[in-house]
């Protein structure tokens, strides 16, 4: 693919140029910024992903989107039937979203 070539080439030129003009080739290894105090521990920790329920609802929808792209191309041929089916399916998913909302999934902290 030509464009990929162009893109990679441009990035290589950028990084190459930088390495040519950079003030020093040593990569500075330092502590993470902590407002001027020493770091107590590494930051990569098990992060409390409080929106994981949103992620699950999202995955449900995202699967559905995979069907929707081909559906787009056949709407005209298949007519009302496919529209009704698709939006009935979406209505079920929206019902799930409303339920999730009532359970407070979209509010966190």
């Amino acid at each position: 693919m030509v464009l990929l070539g162009v893109a990679v080439l441009l990035l290589l030129v950028l990084y190459g140029l930088s390495s040519g003009v950079r003030i020093s080739h040593r990569v500075l290894c330092r502590e993470a910024f902590m407002s001027g105090l020493p770091v107590r521990e590494h930051a990569v920790s098990r992060f409390h992903v409080r929106w994981y329920l949103i992620a699950i609802v999202f995955v449900v929808f995202d699967m559905e989107m995979v069907f929707m792209y081909p559906w787009v191309l056949v709407v005209r041929e298949t007519g009302a039937g496919s529209v009704v089916e698709m939006f009935a399916f979406l209505a079920v998913l929206v019902a799930a979203v409303i339920y999730a909302w009532r359970e407070g999934v979209f509010r966190w902290t």
Binding site: L17, S18, V21, R22, I23, S24, R26, V27, L28, C29, R30, E31, A32, H42, V44
Partner: peptide
């Protein structure tokens, strides 16, 4: 500015 600047990493970072 950014082309000339030194690269840096945090210790232990990926």
């Amino acid at each position: 500015r950014l082309l000339v600047a030194q690269r840096s990493v945090v210790v232990g970072s990926d």
